[in-house]
């Protein structure tokens, strides 16, 4: 019963926190660029504005794909928040990304096509890494259920956590890996043919996707004391956001081939090394 209540509380609280996190992200970005930056609640204002706009769609398929994308991302996060199976959440979230790409393809616009294709490439780049990280987490924990994580895994899986950096960069749409939404190349790619409410829906879907990815990161740390546990989890997330912003602000965008190669090499490499080290020394003594 308490699980259901915490799950419900998470379902409401976490998206709000993600919005706040994006606000912090924008503020940090601005300060690194020597600007004042928007108010902390700007992402909420943006979303509110988008939902208040006229509903216009290029075609019906596009609307269905937008709805599918946000529903799937929400489901993925809900599965995660209510203590469900991580693997289910992973594949549902992946399906949400697919719906986003299909929505872009359905518009028949040249930029939408390119964006959709690049979105699929992004999926190809980061999902294997994310999958392997989830796998290693579950393997170490002995269960893939998200509420079964109660052990501190940080000292066992430090490399797998570092492997999440490019994944977070891609999902947060940050340079050097903001390929599918490249504003100056393909005019924000997958989002280009959306506007108003439907664009707002996609943005909301993106929030849920982020909630899921950041959720995975929080699984690395846990403590017996609930306060320390929560503090540690938030700290990891904040460090990741800070790193993402710093990297975003000190790199140019790479090209699509580069993104796929680098993410896979870096992410898979680190997680596999971590896995091998664990396997050599199952008792965990060298850590």
């Amino acid at each position: 019963m308490t699980d259901a209540i915490t799950g419900l509380a998470m379902l409401i609280a976490v998206p709000l926190l993600i919005g706040l996190l994006l606000g912090i992200d924008r503020r940090l970005t601005a300060r690194m660029q020597n600007r004042v930056g928007p108010p902390l609640l700007q992402p909420f204002y943006d979303l509110w504005k988008l939902f208040g706009k006229e509903r216009r769609a290029v075609n019906q398929a596009q609307v269905s794909f937008a709805a599918a994308s946000v529903l799937l991302q929400f489901t993925a996060f809900a599965v995660f928040a209510t203590g469900g199976d991580l693997l289910v959440a992973f594949f549902v979230s992946g399906a949400g990304n697919l719906a986003l790409a299909l929505g872009a393809f359905s518009s028949r616009s040249a930029y939408g096509q390119l964006g959709g294709q690049r979105e699929l490439l992004q999926v190809l780049a980061y999902e294997p890494v994310l999958f392997l990280v989830i796998f290693i987490l579950g393997w170490q924990n002995g269960s893939f259920l998200s509420d079964a994580f109660g052990e501190n895994l940080l000292y066992l899986l430090p490399l797998a956590l570092i492997a999440m950096v490019p994944v977070v960069l891609i999902t947060m749409q940050k340079s050097p890996f903001d390929i599918a939404t490249a504003h100056q190349e393909i005019v924000s790619g997958v989002y280009v043919e959306y506007s108003g409410t439907y664009l707002g829906l996609l943005k909301l879907g993106h929030w849920f996707e982020l909630a899921f990815v950041f959720g995975i990161i929080t699984l690395f740390f846990s403590a017996d004391d609930i306060v320390i546990s929560l503090l540690g989890k938030s700290l990891i997330v904040l460090v990741f956001v800070f790193l993402a912003v710093l990297i975003d602000n000190s790199t140019a965008r790479t090209t699509r081939g580069d993104m796929v190669f680098k993410t896979l090499a870096f992410g898979l490499g680190l997680t596999i090394i971590n896995l091998v080290l664990l396997w050599i020394d199952v008792s965990g003594a060298i850590w």
Partner: peptide
């Protein structure tokens, strides 16, 4: 100087813009 140093320096200094 690299961009990372520059970003961190900017982060710690006062913003250059005003809220016009």
């Amino acid at each position: 100087m690299s961009m990372i140093v520059s970003s961190l320096k900017n982060l710690l200094s006062k913003p250059d813009t005003v809220r016009y």
